[in-house]
Nucleic acid binder design. Sequence first.
DNA 1: CCGGAAATCCACCGAACGGTTGATGCCGTC
DNA 2: GACGGCATCAACCGTTCGGTGGATTTCCGG
Lengths: 213, 213
Amino acid sequence: MAEPPVRLLIADDHPIVRDGIRGMFAGDPEFEVLGEAGDGAQAVELAQALNPDVILMDLRMPGTDGVTAIKELARRGNAARVLVLTTYDTDRDVLPAIEAGATGYLLKDTGRDELVRAVRTAARGEAVLSPSVATRLLGRVRTPADPLSARELEVLRLIAEGATNRETAARLFISEATVKSHVLHIYTKLGVNDRAAAVATAFRRGLLTLDNG
Amino acid sequence: MAEPPVRLLIADDHPIVRDGIRGMFAGDPEFEVLGEAGDGAQAVELAQALNPDVILMDLRMPGTDGVTAIKELARRGNAARVLVLTTYDTDRDVLPAIEAGATGYLLKDTGRDELVRAVRTAARGEAVLSPSVATRLLGRVRTPADPLSARELEVLRLIAEGATNRETAARLFISEATVKSHVLHIYTKLGVNDRAAAVATAFRRGLLTLDNG
DNA sequence: CCGGAAATCCACCGAACGGTTGATGCCGTC
DNA sequence: GACGGCATCAACCGTTCGGTGGATTTCCGG
């Protein structure tokens, strides 16, 4: 009784990575690579057209990102299991993907055998997490973090630029008292006591990023 | 008059990436992939044994990293051109690699054709830089940055933890006046005016890292 | 309707910061 | 010896921050 091959779609903006993944599954008759997508929107279209069992999905892609694509697949009722394969395991990346419906989350340092096993597991509908992501999720259960509001994030970005509360107030057309309220809320949510620690924590959680955008 | 193939060695700790690169050059008779290494030390040994024309080298690898490997290759007089292929374009990554002797520096979003071209260029001994790395180097020529001293880095780390100057002084067994001197030197060197901006700039320059180490 | 979250705002006050203007001592290099 | 960089230290002072203890309005979900 031979099982049908696991049908796979690869979504990653890096050609090197797409080739690498394709190469890993190419010689194995248990898998069939249906196609490749360079961004989330293309992944959704190909998934609708080709009906893969598993989609290997990067998160940070230009144009439509991975989380948006996962949500769109769910909205369209697509049955494919989404296994995230990405470089990043920050809160900012992991949680939205899992909340959007990803069946698994792996990092790109995953070896060949482990990746093959993970794809099989995901095809069965079972969850697969890399150790660092599993650890992070356990940590979140113990110390749930409140998300910063949009306004708080705006204030945080200006803090990181070195703006005083007064300057921030002028930039956002609000009073300095309001800025201070936001600042204190940021401290409470991030569990810190001053601006410098808030900025450091924000970088480590992916709330602030290394690019200037 | 057919030219001999460019002989290539791949050094990257990610199996997916090694496979991807190998796949890119596999069908092209102008290139010959000699082997793969999972870290810098292995790359050096293979380069000595196989004499590649070009080594595609990742920087952040467990065990011996890429910069150390580049230095060791130079020390041993190995003639291979090192083309760095990595995810990171922070100052902390780019400059040491180029100073160590890398012929080129590319990011992993480089497409197939561009990568093939880059390897040919590097084999000829000509420099190859990705646009973002070129931009960054131009920026450094215009505004050369002073490196922080070891003591300044110590102070910066404590600032990022949220320590006051007084607490930092107690931790380092110095006076608060000394801490303030270091703090002001940090601001001058990073071109900022307060702690929060110093921390942000430090993350973006790789002086502070996302892991807690 | 009620409660909670978000955004906005106020006044007061002590602590801490940032800036300034010095200084000394040690070490390595020329 | 002279010089520069680093580490260390001091005093003074105005500005900013962080904390406290409030307040109102709007929106959304139960």
